[in-house]
Amino acid sequence: MPTALITGITGQDGLYLAELLLAKGYDVHGVIRGQNNPRRELVERLVPDVRLHNGDLTDLSSLMRALRESQPDEVYNLGAVSFVAYSWENAFVTSDVTAIGVLNLLEAVRLHCGDDPSSVRFYQASSSEMFGKVQETPQRESTLLWPRSPYGVSKVYGHYMTINYRESYGMHASSGILFNHESPRRGEEFVTRKVSKAVAAIKLGMQDELVMGNLDARRDWGFAGDYVDAMWRMLQQPEADDYVIATGETHTIEELVRVAFAHVGIDDWKRYVRQDPAFMRPAEVDELIGDASKAREVLGWEPTVRFEELVAMMVDADVAALKAGW
C-alpha cells in the first residue's frame, strides 16, 4: 500500500485528491494547520480514512514531524494562501506560506530522504497566475513568467525552487501549472463560487443582486476532480517534470454569469448584476488559456468536464445546499 502526505487537505483540491488516492488503495495522511481548524470536521466527514497531522508550512519542525509520522512515498504540496485578491492586502503572509512554505517542505523532504533524495516523490501546485501579463497565447511550460500579484510572485518562487531542488539534489520533484479549476467545494470568496451561490440564492428569492468586478477577464476553467488526477499521474512518471494542466478553452466572467443564470431559467441576467470598482484587481490578468499538449502526450491526461457542465454542477449544488439550510 503506497502512502501519501497532502498539505492543504482542507481545500477543494486536497479533498478531491484524498478521495482519489483512497480509491486507489493509498494510505493517506494530511497536514492541517491548528488544532481548532474549522475545516477539520469537513475533512473528517468527507474522507474519514485520512490520518491528520498538525503542521504548518511556515514551521519546518512540524513538517519534519509529519513526514516522520507518515513515512510517505509521495508528498503533494497543495497548501497556500490561494485567494489572489487577498494577496495584495496580505503580501507578507502570502509570501510566508505560498513561497517560503514550499522551500520549507522541499527541505523537510530532502532531509527526510537522507542519502536517497528521490525516494519520496514531490508534487508542487504551481499556478497559471504565474503567467500574469501573458507573453504568449496559449501558455505552455516554456512561456515566460510575468506574475501580476503577490500570489503569482509567490507561486513563481515555489515553482522555481521546486525545479532547483530537482536539479540540485536529484529529487523527484514535479510541478503542475494548473489553470483555474473549480467545483462545488470551491471557497465562496472565489468568483466561480460567488456566482454559483448568488445565482442559486436569487433563484430561490433569498438574494436580490450579484455584485461583480471585471466581467471581461477571460479564464481557462476546468473541474478540480479532473485536475487532481493529473497530479497523481505526474508522480507516477519515471522522471520528474513540469506540466501545464488546462482545458484549452477560454471564457469570460460575463459568460460564466450568463451560463449560471441560464441554468436556473433566468435569461435577463443583467437586471440582477451590478459592477463595483471595489472588486477590481490593482493589476488585472486579462486572459489565461493553457496548452496541455505535454500532459496529454506524456501523462495521457484529458479533462472530462466541460465548462457548461461545471457551471451547472456548481449551481445545482448551491441550490440544493440553500434549500437544505432553508
Rank of each mutant, 00 (worst) to 15 (best):
E209Q: 11
R219Q: 08
R219T: 05
A230W: 01
E209H: 13
A198N: 07
A200N: 03
A230Q: 01
E189M: 13
F190N: 10
D229G: 08
V199N: 07
L210R: 04
E188R: 14
R218P: 00
Y227H: 04
V211R: 10
P184H: 05
S174H: 15
K194A: 14
D216L: 11
G213V: 09
E209M: 10
F223Q: 07
A230F: 07
I177R: 05
R219D: 05
V211M: 03
T192N: 13
D226V: 09
R186C: 09
Q207V: 00
N214K: 12
L178R: 13
F190S: 11
N214V: 09
L215A: 10
P184T: 07
G222F: 09
V211F: 02
V228S: 12
D216R: 15
A230I: 00
L204I: 03
S175T: 03
S174P: 06
G225S: 03
A200M: 06
G213C: 05
N180K: 00
K194T: 15
V228K: 00
P184M: 08
G205C: 03
G187C: 01
E209P: 03
S196Q: 01
F190C: 09
A198T: 03
Q207I: 06
V228I: 10
V191Y: 11
S175C: 07
E188P: 03
E182P: 04
N180R: 00
S196T: 09
I202P: 02
D220V: 06
I202L: 03
S196R: 03
S183A: 08
G222Q: 03
K197E: 13
